[in-house]
Design a protein around this nucleic acid. Structure first.
Lengths: 216, 216
DNA sequence: GTCTATATTCTGATAGAC
DNA sequence: GTCTATCAGAATATAGAC
């Protein structure tokens, strides 16, 4: 039980606001990932969050406001995963770390992956500035690293851009095409072991495909 | 100018019907691929097809009827591509043919690929019977071929199921994530040369990754 | 900040003239 | 077969009491 007079630390403005917003954001991610933008109603978001519909309108300007907030959240996560790859000395190590991180993201955040994918599939109208701003420079930096490795003979001459696409497509597939993957593997729900097997195969093929040997 | 009395060939019942339906189906594919099921209105389909909204209702039972018709069309195309792979003597040749066909499908039918992807992302509620029926047996047959090749040492021990996922993810990426791909390649629209480069890289990595050498 | 009630717009679907 | 007019329901959004 909390004593009203006990020290409560510095006053946090908008603490209730922050928590309520977080609850609604998580509800929105869940709804958008399954039903898409148009298929998601403000009512359904409110229902999942367990609040009246008007509250969602109070915290966000409108439906588009909720959606862009969700997208922003996802891009932040993406940045984290993306930044996980650094200029390391060994290409094989970097690729392994990156593939593991991407597969793990598909396992732990499938809904976020699906919202991102649906946005892409619709032509990415709300990702224009992201794609043109930080994304391009980030990608260019990574690609130049690969090109350097290829130049000095550290790996085979594999077009880095398309190699990236291969890694993205292969890893995100496990979140985005989950029904097909689940059915193909003859399971009910994807378990840790399935993701481990996925990571193993992707790393095996990509590394050998680039003329690299796995780091021990 | 056409003479009313000239021979017109055998009477084709429902010829108008067939043509009108085709026009509406193409309009529907375009709409669904961009806006998804919920985001597509019967009005928008009618507008794209250039007919009154009521006509769409006349030719299809309801909105779900249009959608399932579109999905059915796409699955037929998929089958064609899938059946392109046969029990050939050389794994490398088969893989090359399959990858080329998949990349070409992404180039020539990006909208169909996106509708399929959106359905998957939503949990594939309308593909249950397909996934459980012909798809599973088709996949099992292909996988057993790969397992045989691995057993007799014709290729490396790469888990066939996950190898399939890699090929699907890598090739469909060019249709499904077109905005990102386009931006990354620094182009306005994807050209034949881009798809050629994509196919080349995917084949290079997959083949080497499986311990195979390209067929000359 | 929270919630009820309501205004307004849009969508799927149909009836009925031509 | 084709089209205009229209209905019933649902969705976004807001007004205003608490």
């Amino acid at each position: 039980m909390i004593n009203r007079t006990m020290p409560r630390g510095p006053y946090k403005p908008g603490k209730i606001r922050q928590k309520s917003q977080q609850t609604m954001l998580e509800a929105a991610i869940q709804a958008f990932s399954q039903y898409g933008y148009s298929g998601t109603s403000m009512q359904s978001i409110a229902d999942i969050a367990g609040v009246p519909k008007a509250n969602v309108h109070y915290y966000f300007k409108n439906k588009l406001g909720v959606y862009t907030a969700v997208l922003g959240n996802i891009l932040d996560m993406w940045d984290t995963v993306l930044n996980d790859i650094t200029i390391a000395d060994d290409p094989a190590t970097v690729l392994c770390r990156y593939i593991d991180a991407k597969i793990d993201f598909s396992r732990t955040h499938p809904q976020e992956s699906r919202v991102f994918a649906k946005e892409m599939l619709s032509g990415a109208p709300h990702l224009q500035e992201f794609l043109q701003a930080k994304y391009t420079t980030w990608l260019d930096n990574r690609l130049s690293i690969f090109r350097h490795w290829i130049k000095v003979g550290k790996m085979d001459d594999v077009e880095p851009t398309h190699l990236m696409f291969m890694i993205w497509g292969s890893t995100q597939h496990y979140a985005d095409f989950a029904p097909q993957v689940t059915q193909s593997l003859g399971t009910d729900t994807l378990q840790q072991e399935h993701f481990d097997a996925a990571a193993k195969t992707v790393k095996q093929v990509i590394l050998r495909g680039c003329g690299l040997t796995p780091p021990e």
